[in-house]
Amino acid sequence: MLIGLGAVLLAVVLIGVRPKTPGQFRSTVETSVQNAVSSVGTARVTGQTALRGNTFGPYESTVLEDARKSVATAISDIAESSVPDESSRDLRDEVLPLLQDSARLLGDLDAGLEDDDRAAATGAVDGLTAAGEKLTTVLEGLR
């Protein structure tokens, strides 16, 4: 009984610590990029709505904070994953800069709206539009 339980626990631990296969790494990246597409798209629409004067501060900062957290999680999920092969490394190197750029733009949008700096907020919305398109292209390639 105890030996069986030990074997099961050992199997669980080994499954948990074994390196990722290329397929699993790709799946992690796909999930992360999907989350980033959602966050960037939501932030862009929120920014446009805010620039038209249709939202208020606490709502904007809550939505943008959720978006920032989601992109930060996407970045850490990829950065913390072991890279199983060369093609996975290329994929990581393609995706991580896009995610980091998105995180920066989300911060810029939040700061622009908070400081009532329309030019900065508009620039961040435009940047998020471009970042969203690039992320969507990557996502379509991963599917």
Binding site: Q34, N35, V37, S38, S39, G41, T42, V45, T46, T49, Y59, T62, V63, D66, G132, T136, L139
Partner: peptide
Amino acid sequence: PLGAQVDTLGQTAL
């Protein structure tokens, strides 16, 4: 159309 998923209440209100 954005290909975005919804997982917060803020998104529901947008």
